[in-house]
Amino acid sequence: MLHMTKVAVGCSSLDILRDRIGAHAANGTAAIHTRYRPTRADEMVGGSLYWIIAHRLVARQTILGFEEAEGGRCVIRVDARLVPVRARPKRAHQGWRYLAAADAPDDFDGGDADVSAMPKAMIDELSALSLI
């Protein structure tokens, strides 16, 4: 399975990204616009788009498909649900990049810890250190 990474431009937190996606979601899907269609697009359907915020992979969305848009641009159809992942450092880049399945971070399931009771600042700091 092949995935992709993309910088969440203008988003300083996962909450902001979640709000942005929610504002544009309809019928359980969201559209991400990009300049070029990936040459390996067929391999990515069913994979995930991993979001980079503050130089870390922090969340993913399942890729449902690709469509052509006006002006030769591409629309990536993704599941509107944003799944937090175990944060992993990732340098920012322009556009999108491929991500092999072996390099993809695991979903954040919280494990035995109840992180909902922690202050947001603590969650952010522990996540930045890749401890949760």
Rank of each mutant, 00 (worst) to 15 (best):
S116C: 09
V83F: 05
A100R: 07
E70K: 15
A113K: 10
L57W: 00
R60F: 03
R88N: 01
H93Q: 14
L82K: 01
P105R: 04
A113W: 08
A104L: 07
L49G: 01
P105H: 03
W51Q: 03
D103H: 10
I52T: 05
E67N: 14
L49E: 01
F108G: 00
L82N: 02
D103E: 15
L64H: 10
G111L: 08
S116T: 15
I53M: 06
A59S: 14
W96D: 04
E70I: 07
H55T: 09
Q94F: 11
D112S: 14
A59T: 02
L57C: 02
R91I: 06
A104I: 06
E70Y: 12
L82W: 04
M118K: 04
V58N: 00
R77Y: 05
R73M: 10
P84C: 03
A102N: 05
G71V: 10
C74Q: 07
D103V: 08
D106S: 11
A100G: 01
F108L: 08
F66M: 09
G110T: 09
A100F: 07
S116V: 14
V78N: 01
Y98D: 13
G110P: 08
I63W: 04
P105S: 04
H93A: 13
L57R: 00
A80K: 08
D79K: 07
R56H: 11
G111K: 10
I76M: 13
A104H: 05
E67F: 05
R97P: 00
G111Y: 06
E67H: 13
R56T: 03
R86Q: 06
E67Q: 15
R77K: 14
Q61I: 09
G72T: 13
R97K: 15
R73T: 08
A101M: 11
I52P: 00
E70G: 14
Y50D: 00
R88W: 05
I52D: 01
G95A: 14
R81Q: 14
G95I: 07
G110R: 03
E68T: 14
A54R: 08
A113Q: 12
A102R: 13
L82Q: 05
G110E: 08
E68S: 12
I52Y: 04
D79M: 05
A117W: 12
A92R: 12
Q61D: 11
T62D: 06
E70H: 15
W51L: 06
G110M: 07
C74R: 02
W51D: 01
R86V: 11
A117R: 15
R81T: 14
K90S: 08
G72C: 10
D109S: 06
H93V: 08
R77M: 13
Q61V: 07
Y98Q: 05
I63E: 02
V58K: 03
D114N: 15
A101V: 14
A87Y: 04
D109N: 10
P84K: 05
W51C: 02
A100M: 10
H55W: 11
C74T: 13
G65W: 06
L99G: 03
I76Q: 06
A102L: 06
V83L: 07
A113C: 11
R77D: 02
V58T: 07
G71Q: 07
L82G: 02
R60M: 11
K90M: 15
G110C: 13
